[in-house]
């Protein structure tokens, strides 16, 4: 049944008690159903505060839905598990660990031996063009390199599902393009299933098989768009595709409408 999907949100609603428990509880996301097949990359775009990050936390098992269920490989998600890994806008590299040790963190927590960790970490760093920086500390690296290291740390767990929460939004435009390409390649080659949250519409279109648009809070999926452009592992090529502009224009229109009523909601954040 549900095992056909790698990651599935089934009728998920999340409410938060407001401050001091008075007043209406805050509905962050309402009745969201999303299902990702094996190897699929799906992006979610929407106004800020629409509960995208809440959705992601529930996918990672860090948070439980108020109603509905989340499944990974058909198993109900009740706590963090090794099938799912996530990556955030902040690289969250631990400043007291060098890059290799940072990449090892997940395996170390799960009790892998030192030699296995070093082997896997060294492999990944070489792959993400960080081979020469294994012994460097995070503050010695640029923002793009740090985010690459964070990607390596995420992949070190060999997760089936990768959750990405605006991982490139703090980077400069050129670095962002390069990292998008690296990510697209890795996801493709390793056949990872990924749920990608972003503000950047062209990023969403160029990296994904599908783009979902969320409404303002309470967030719910208001539109699904299947991106029928080939070459998913090569976002540069995709950006040049004639249909690219079509998708972007349509999504901009959708978000523009949503954006008009956004301002009053901006204070509260998911």
């Amino acid at each position: 049944m549900s095992a056909a999907y790698r990651l599935e949100f089934r009728g998920v609603t999340k409410t938060f008690a407001t401050k001091k428990g008075r007043g209406e509880p805050l509905v962050a996301v309402r009745d969201v159903s999303v299902a990702l097949s094996d190897g699929e990359v799906v992006s979610i775009i929407g106004p800020s505060g629409c509960g995208k990050s809440t959705l992601l936390n529930m996918g990672a098992g860090l948070d439980r839905p108020t109603a509905g269920q989340v499944f990974v490989d058909g198993d109900l998600v009740t706590k963090p598990n090794s099938h799912v890994a996530f990556m955030l806008q902040k690289d969250l590299l631990l400043p007291w660990r060098n890059i290799l040790e940072n990449v090892e963190l997940g395996q170390e927590i799960q009790g892998a031996s030192k030699s296995d960790r070093v082997k896997r970490g060294t492999e990944l760093l070489a792959r993400y063009h960080l081979g020469d920086f294994a012994q460097h500390y995070p503050h010695q690296l640029s923002g793009g390199m740090r985010q690459r290291a964070a990607l390596a740390r995420t992949m070190a767990m060999n997760p089936d599902v990768v959750l990405l929460d605006e991982p490139f939004s703090a980077l400069d435009a050129q670095t962002k393009l390069v990292l998008q390409k690296d990510l697209a390649q890795v996801l493709w080659e390793e056949k990872k299933t990924a749920l990608f949250i972003t503000h950047d519409i062209s990023e969403a279109v160029s990296l994904s098989d599908r783009v979902l648009v969320m409404s303002r809070r309470p967030g719910t999926i208001i539109r699904e768009m299947i991106i029928e452009i080939p070459d998913r592992p090569d976002p540069f090529k995709r950006r040049r595709h004639p249909r690219m502009g079509e998708y972007v224009t349509e999504l901009l229109g959708l978000l523009g409408i949503v954006d008009g009523t956004l301002e009053d909601e901006r204070k509260a954040d998911a």
């Binding site: 936390n57 990672a60 098992g61 860090l62 706590k79 963090p80 598990n81 090794s82 799912v84 890994a85 996530f86 955030l88 902040k90 969250l92 631990l94 963190l105 997940g106 927590i109 799960q110 767990m157």
Partner: peptide
């Protein structure tokens, strides 16, 4: 978020 990172690794 740093705590959540560790939690996500169980």
């Amino acid at each position: 978020a740093m705590i959540n990172l560790a939690r996500s690794f169980s």
